[in-house]
């Protein structure tokens, strides 16, 4: 069964892939976000989609200040606690 962390990781990876046009297969959870090249608008849109999907409040700066997908997932999990 998929854990909560896996569900968030999968959702986040799909969204980052959709906005950055980088295939999911090239987005491991420990990949440096700075190498993906998301724009400010992408980051805002992704944080909005996370809020809607998981019913939490998460500022775009959380993604902006994170180094990897894993780090974002950890912060999302913390927001849910």
């Amino acid at each position: 069964m998929e854990t909560e962390a896996q569900a968030i990781t999968n959702f986040l990876t799909e969204k980052i892939s959709a906005y950055s046009k980088v295939p999911v297969s090239e987005l491991p959870a420990d990949k440096a976000l700075e190498d993906i090249g998301l724009s400010s608008l992408d980051i805002v849109m992704i944080s909005g989609e996370i809020e809607d999907e998981f019913d939490i409040e998460i500022d775009p700066s959380v993604i902006f200040d994170s180094k990897t997908i894993n780090e974002v997932v950890e912060k999302v999990l913390k927001s849910k606690d």
């Binding site: 805002v44 944080s47 909005g48 809020e51 409040e57 775009p60």
Partner: peptide
Amino acid sequence: LDPLLPIR
């Protein structure tokens, strides 16, 4: 002034 405004 926040450079990354949440949609919320």
